[in-house]
Amino acid sequence: MIVPDNNVIVNEVEKLIEKYGSGRENLLPVLQDIQRKFGFISDFAMQEIAHKMNIHPVEVYGVVTFYSFLSTEPKGKYIIRLCKTISCDLAGKDAVANTLQRELGLKFGETSSDRKFTLEYCHCIGMCDQGPAMLINEQVYTKLTPSKVIEIIENLK
């Protein structure tokens, strides 16, 4: 993925402000859409949003860095979030975690150099009765086993 140039961001922010409105209460939906489209929220994007919403860029930065699903650094096309909360842990999270790290060649918290995959841990995703579970972007995968994980990753590669 190529880092978007600033004109694209200006246009996108303008479009989103038109869609949601320029009031502060619309900040999160705007940020979520920028995150979804570009894979991260750049310094320039934060400044542009702040300018259009008439708030200080630091306010925007404060919000972006508060929420774990928003990021200031580029993330992969596929963000894999493995649940590490207790029920998934009891159900065999460690074997799944090892498989993910080995197959992707990534440690948790890392993004692949081709920006295809980001591997992260997350907290409870509400699939406790069907663990171990993970999210890939907005899709949920349950009752994971090492061989199931290998198949899922192969399909995305």
Binding site: P29, L31, F66
Partner: peptide, 25 residues
Amino acid sequence: IRLGSGAYVCGEETALIESLEGHRG
């Protein structure tokens, strides 16, 4: 419908309202 962005504390009602208003939760 408004989406959260992965913050457990936003389940607390006043943090949730802060988040709805576009602030840190």
